[in-house]
Nucleic acid binder design. Structure first.
Length: 444
RNA sequence: GUGGCUAUAGCUCAGUUGGUUAGAGCGCCAGAUUGUGGUUCUGGAAGUCGCCGGUUCAAAUCCGGUUAGCCACCCCA
């Protein structure tokens, strides 16, 4: 290989694929840590599945449109393979394969990248992270309610102060469509309905009429119900009358009523959970409760955590019935929102303490101090070169270290270290034996 | 996948009707400051103007293609 300029390979990433620098990665890992701990606190266990699957396992599950987005190719062994485009289809395959040994109900979380060959746009990439959690093998509404609780705890732990989890139930929508003889048009109608917030009542009616050929009056009646406003109790009362006689609709209402009752008695702030008959979620496979989560300070960014209940996850892989309910945190969207809300920190070091290297002849003391700090659970970086102390302080400042430890000939002869507080701009000399407790209290 | 906009230093962007050696701010590196960061001052490095081709005496500038990004639609996290 020549080192001439013209032969250098251009460093570049593929369309829709991204690199993450330390500050971005710190924020990502922080969010993932929170998701992990909340999921675990409800008993969800981690799993992972391969990025690559047989194409037949993945394809044909989300309609033609999503098949077109799948990265698919023939591998070196002439197999027809595809990269996973979500975590739900792999879960279906996984569940069908292992349900015998796992038993039900089974709760898993899966935090992993997925790939879609669609056109990238703002907040949309060809490789992105999903943070799914699902409870499968039970039809109990209790699992639906706990799914809501998980979403609530997740947002709370992330530090979002104002958010709304909008809840609806597909059965309620189906009951309504049933009463208006619109069941054959379910997919088109719900897809149009889902855009209500974005495009408004008239445009939704127009789209329904255009896509299904129904007359505007009937479309309007769907909207009348979808636009119901008020407390969950008020909306439920109106729906009760509207859906009377529809078994499906009444079942959906009963589940919603139970859910809101649990919200009230389990200490979830009432104002965070709304009953919104207009949300439908695009995915065809939802059959019961559906959720989406909007940020109070940035609703226009869209749902940051959505999900719902499905009747039979694994029917394509096994004859065993596997109903389930779950949701997914949109990590990239959440991060974009946090960035816009100024919630991300700027530090690019994961360690709070920098041990400066003042005098290279004492290298062992500096290295030993680093080890001592880490042994006490304090992250510490030892500056690798005995450069000017000003330079090292500059580095500490830029990287966002909270404390810097400094010791030269004077300190070593007195048996002390200087602890410099970068934020406050002050420092104190501390005997070597008291360094650790002193730092621990400073970092509190 | 369809339509539109854009691409100049690490980042944000100037760059006149095509004209000689392409600029600024921020950042980066060094020095002022060989025992102390954030402020300030001084200096420095860094661009074959996304890439390929065409028109022209001459292209960052005009044209075509290509790659990437942004916006809308579609769909979705």
């Amino acid at each position: 290989m020549s080192s001439s300029k013209s032969q250098k390979i251009k460093p570049q990433t593929l369309r829709g694929f991204r690199d993450f620098l330390p500050d971005q990665m710190m924020a990502r890992e922080h969010l993932i840590d929170i998701a992990r701990s909340v999921y675990r606190s409800y008993g969800f266990a981690p799993i992972d599945t391969p990025a690559l699957e047989y194409a037949e396992v993945l394809l044909g599950k989300g309609g033609e449109e999503s098949d077109k987005q799948v990265f698919r190719f023939t591998d070196q062994g002439d197999r027809d393979v595809a990269m996973r485009f979500d975590l739900t289809v792999p879960l279906a395959r996984f569940a069908a394969q292992y349900v015998q040994e796992l038993g039900v109900p089974f709760r898993r979380y899966h935090i992993a990248p997925v790939w879609r060959g669609e056109r990238p746009a703002r907040g949309r990439f060809r490789e992105f992270m999903q943070c799914d959690f699902d409870t499968i093998g039970t039809t109990s509404n209790s699992a639906d309610i706990e799914t809501l609780f998980v979403i609530n705890d997740l947002l709370e732990k992330i530090g979002i102060e104002r958010f709304t989890i909008r809840v609806n139930n597909r059965r309620v929508l189906n009951g309504l469509l049933e009463k208006h003889d619109l069941l054959p048009h379910t997919v088109s109608i719900l897809r149009a309905l889902d855009k209500l917030d974005k495009i408004g009542r008239e445009a939704v009616i127009a789209e329904m009429v255009e896509r299904t050929g129904i007359d505007p009056q009937r479309a309007g009646r769907v909207l009348d119900m979808a636009e119901l406003k008020g407390t969950p109790e008020e909306v439920l009362a109106v729906l009760d009358g509207m859906l009377a006689g529809s078994q499906t609709g009444e079942l959906g209402l009963a589940n919603l009523r139970e859910l809101f009752s649990a919200v009230n008695s389990c200490g979830i702030p009432k104002e965070r959970i709304s009953l919104d008959v207009a949300i439908a979620r695009g995915l065809d496979y939802y059959t019961g409760t559906i959720y989406e989560t909007l940020l109070g300070d940035l609703p226009e960014i869209g749902s940051v955590c959505s999900g719902g209940r499905y009747d039979n996850l694994a029917e394509l892989f096994t004859s065993q019935q596997l109903p389930g309910v779950g949701a997914s945190l949109g990590l990239d969207r959440m991060l974009a929102a946090m960035e816009e809300l100024g919630m991300t920190q700027k530090a690019t070091t994961p360690a709070p303490v920098l041990v400066t290297m003042f005098d290279a002849s004492h290298i062992n003391e500096y290295l030993a101090m680093g080890r001592a700090l880490r042994k006490s659970g304090i992250g510490a970086e030892v500056y690798p070169e005995a450069k000017g102390i000003g330079k090292q302080m500059k580095y500490a400042d830029k990287k966002g270290f909270r404390l810097a430890l400094i010791a030269g000939a004077d300190e070593f002869s007195q048996g002390v270290w200087q602890i410099r507080n970068l934020k406050e701009g002050n420092q104190l000399a501390v005997p070597a034996s008291e360094i650790i407790p002193q730092i621990q209290s400073l970092l509190k």
